[in-house]
Design a binder for these strands. Structure first.
Lengths: 227, 227
DNA sequence: GCCAAAATTGAACGATCGTTGAATACTAGT
DNA sequence: ACTAGTATTCAACGATCGTTCAATTTTGGC
């Protein structure tokens, strides 16, 4: 982290780590930090330690490279979250699942991935954080990649709170989405604000608080505005 | 001036609306939609209906123009929110203020500005939405512009919940910040997800739910983990 | 009406952008 | 060893980027 312009390569033994993957790694990191438009294909390839034209050989264009970065991890993400949800539902075959348990199934797999300091995932989540709050990319991309799973979670929440109006449910999910994705950005803002008490990277602290916070919000809104 | 390609100027009578302001308006809208790096100075000046070099005459550089866009509205924003907070505190000179009231003072002035379809503010808030979730810009900019006010709100929350650990308080504010700024982005994602039941632009619906949601979250976290 | 200051114009600068194509090196299967 | 396909290198393309500068027009105080 020395020097603003890092020529630092993604490294790893160049043989065990195929070029295609090295390009994706470098692109992921730079897109996450600076955004799609701010990053140059030449920057990416410098970091990947490969020639510029290889970006267009392995992927067709800068935009397609971006999509490849997105697609590389989205299936695994949706898979582990669905597993967590089904796990909760199996534990409650007779009775109702708690809202907090369902929320935890939604957030915990991601936060655990972030906690297990795999750099790769940190960058990917930071990228999602940016996309989610982007007026242009935000809607379409998040919808395409994650909303099938989200719809599944909302179904589960409907069962857990049958008296809740759908409109309330969707807005509450909106709040959840915002709170979760800001966490992914790790902007360091809370570090300053709290005078060092809190650390942006401390996913354990978030993991213990987020489900409680969000579940209470869901229940207050849904119960509060019932006719 | 004949045969100009109409990409939609910021218009208004060119006399009553000075060039400097027209540039700021155009920059605000484009930065908000596409992000700092994706926007071209030439795009901005085309929309502002002025020559490229005027951007560098009125502001020194693209980056300084960006800062000017930010600074133009930040004082007014902090002012109306501080007023709202002081209003709450005056109403409760003897007893404690409700957490929900304090949160409402934090969110309502912004949401009302967004509801009163002044396009100008819509763009500004969308810009904040992007910055807040940006790994590079996010921390420093938000800290500089808004954290003095935020610290003031957190003081008020401490008084409203004296038993609450500061660490919990800061994390809860983090969740609030994420939920609020995603709202600003108006990505249209919730429109799709809800099948049309919810609209990203419906600030009234958000305004009636957000304080309830967030206040319940604060109280659950702070009460739940008290020793 | 004069004149200095402020505002606007038009043209250009080097740098760098995304992208391409032709030539070369490497890696199988036979 | 030959070959076919895959992977990599090198050099370049037109376009457009942020920025500057000299010349011109407009403005406001006297």
């Amino acid at each position: 982290m020395i020097g603003r312009i890092d020529t630092g390569t993604v490294a790893m033994n160049r043989k065990s780590h195929p070029t295609r993957e090295r390009i994706l790694d470098a692109a992921e990191e730079l897109f996450a930090r600076d955004g799609f438009a701010a990053v140059t294909v030449r920057q990416i390839m410098r970091k990947a330690d490969a020639d510029v034209s290889l970006a267009y050989y392995h992927f067709k264009s800068k935009r397609d490279l971006f999509d490849a970065v997105m697609l590389r991890r989205v299936d695994h993400l949706n898979s582990i979250r669905l597993d967590a949800l089904e796990n909760v539902e199996q534990r409650h075959s007779g009775d109702r699942a708690t809202v907090e348990e369902i929320i935890a199934a939604f957030t915990q797999p991601l936060l655990e991935l972030l906690a297990s300091d795999h750099e790769e995932w940190r960058h990917y989540f930071a990228l999602i954080a940016q996309i989610n709050n982007s007026t242009e990319f935000g809607g379409p991309l998040m919808t395409r990649y994650f909303d099938p799973l989200v719809a599944r979670f909302i179904e589960a929440l409907k069962k857990a709170m049958p008296e809740c109006e759908p409109e309330d449910l969707y807005w509450c999910y909106h709040f959840l989405s915002g709170a979760l994705t800001l966490t992914f950005a790790e902007t360091g803002r809370i570090d300053n604000l709290s005078g060092g008490i809190c650390k942006s990277s401390d996913m354990t602290s978030i993991n213990t608080r987020m489900p409680t916070f969000i579940a209470a919000g869901f229940e207050a809104v849904c119960r509060g505005r019932r006719p």
